[in-house]
């Protein structure tokens, strides 16, 4: 669980809007396990909410989002912030309830909550 499928080493995605090739970047992630579920925190500053996507497909959790430039024009005197598209995929275990997924984006951190499936009650067999 929480394994990541093998990535291509350097993926470049076409960005149709700006016609600029954006480098995909896997955001740093913290994962917490709670008795009834999991919580993920992903470091994704200045994401354009319109491009933010969180979905489960084939038992894999997909996270995508593109950075939005905060300043549109001018001359760079220092440039450390990279213009990237965030992308990360995690394999989910069988005990995850895919319908329970919820996410919120606050202060540049994407928080995803997933619930574990309710365990089937143990059937007790009476011995005659």
């Amino acid at each position: 669980m929480w394994q990541e499928p093998r990535y291509q080493k350097e993926t470049v995605r076409e960005n149709p809007v700006e016609e600029v090739k954006k480098i995909t970047f896997r955001p740093a992630t913290d994962i917490y396990e709670m008795p009834d579920g999991f919580k993920l925190l992903l470091e994704m500053p200045s994401v354009d909410r319109e491009t933010l996507k969180v979905y489960i497909k084939d038992n894999q959790l997909h996270i995508e989002g593109e950075k939005k430039k905060d300043v549109s024009d001018g001359k760079f005197l220092l440039q450390e912030i990279r213009d990237v598209a965030y992308e990360r995929v995690f394999e989910l275990g069988d005990d995850i309830d895919a319908d329970s997924i919820s996410a919120r984006y606050e202060q540049g951190i994407l928080e995803i909550t997933l619930k574990k499936k309710e365990k089937e009650p143990v059937k007790e067999i009476k011995i005659q």
Partner: peptide, 12 residues
Amino acid sequence: MGQDVQKIRGEI
């Protein structure tokens, strides 16, 4: 995160 919570991955 409170009690009963275990951090299983920490990259931040």
